[in-house]
């Protein structure tokens, strides 16, 4: 009796879950597997019926293209800048918010605003800030007298990546800061007291106690932000479209161009898989080192 009742419950549970599983399969697993599938074919939308199997040719083509490696270099540079800056700024913000001062709660709440803004809205906002004619950045710097004439900020190939990284950092710092703040709050105050009595001034206490305690937080933030930065697309699409002259042509942007402008789905999918694999390897390495240190 009891066994029958349980199996009946289980069956209805599976029945209820089946719908959900089917939807999940359709919207996640299917695209993932389908894109893997088409990365093995030479797809050309202009000749949709002719779709020859090419094996790993797409991957070989991508990996042997110097332009792809240039993009990969830009992605690496962008990610390195972004992750490093997020780590430093988020640490400063977290340490600041860990202090007791009037208005701390209000400030903590305000800090979350950039994080709450949708990515596209953030991109449009920075597009206006960097705008050569009406931009707030030009306005501010002109009024303060730092520049004499309006600058075409995103038009300078040397500035493009740092400026996009800046917009990315602005949005990413809040979450990272909150994560680090939680870690800071978990440090027992006795440790600081002990170090003070041991003769350590404030800065030495920070180095001896705060930094090592933040280590797992740093690794977590670095991992998360690196994954976000490597795959980031929105800002490149909204601010520069890979320009000027390819200066912001990162892998994520290249995948878009290859797939939706050149309509070369096979190589686009192959590139996606290469990027995903690279992200996976990097994450694995970071998680490994994290597990060792903890």
């Amino acid at each position: 009796m009891a066994i029958r009742a349980v199996s009946h419950d289980e069956r209805s549970a599976f029945g209820l879950l089946a719908g959900l599983v089917a939807v999940l399969m359709a919207v996640t697993a299917f695209p993932i597997l389908y894109s893997l599938w088409i990365s093995l074919f030479a797809v050309n939308l202009r000749r949709p019926l002719r779709m020859p199997f090419v094996g790993l040719d797409n991957y070989i083509a991508v990996l042997s293209s110097p332009a792809f490696w240039e993009s990969a270099g830009r992605t690496a540079l962008f990610s390195a800048m972004a992750v490093a800056a997020v780590l430093v700024i988020a640490t400063l913000v977290a340490v600041l918010l860990d202090q007791e001062f009037p208005g701390r709660r209000v400030l903590s709440a305000c800090l979350l605003i950039p994080w709450a803004i949708p990515s596209v809205a953030n991109g449009l906002m920075w597009k206006w800030i960097y705008d050569a004619n009406y931009g707030a950045l030009n306005g501010l710097l002109l009024q303060l007298g730092f520049i004499n004439s309006a600058m075409i900020w995103l038009g300078d190939a040397n500035r493009t990546l740092p400026l996009i990284a800046n917009a990315f950092i602005w949005k990413e710092v809040p979450l990272a800061a909150i994560l680090l703040l939680v870690t800071l709050k978990s440090i027992p105050s006795d440790l600081y007291a002990a170090a003070a009595v041991d003769g350590a001034p404030a800065f030495r206490r920070f180095v001896a106690i705060t930094l090592p305690a933040l280590r797992p937080g740093f690794l977590l933030v670095a991992l998360y932000e690196a994954m976000m930065a490597i795959r980031h697309f929105d800002l490149f699409f909204l601010l520069t479209e890979g320009g000027p002259g390819g200066a912001s042509d990162v892998v994520a942007w290249r995948i878009y161009v290859e797939t939706f402008r050149n309509l070369s789905f096979g190589t686009g999918a192959a590139m996606s898989y290469i990027l995903a694999l690279a992200t996976l390897l990097m994450s694995y390495a970071l998680i490994r080192s994290m597990a060792e240190k903890l």
Binding site: P188, D190, L191, A193, A194, A195, A196, V197, D198, G199, A200, P201, A208, I209, P212, A213, R215
Partner: peptide, 29 residues
């Protein structure tokens, strides 16, 4: 300030520095 007083203290929680070895804990001061 505390770090300029010639004082040592044993805390109820011991407050040992978790990231340092016993040697470094003792040597810190």
């Amino acid at each position: 300030p505390a770090h300029k007083r010639d004082v040592a203290m044993v805390f109820q929680s011991y407050a040992l520095y978790p990231h340092m070895t016993v040697f470094e804990n003792i040597a810190f001061g």
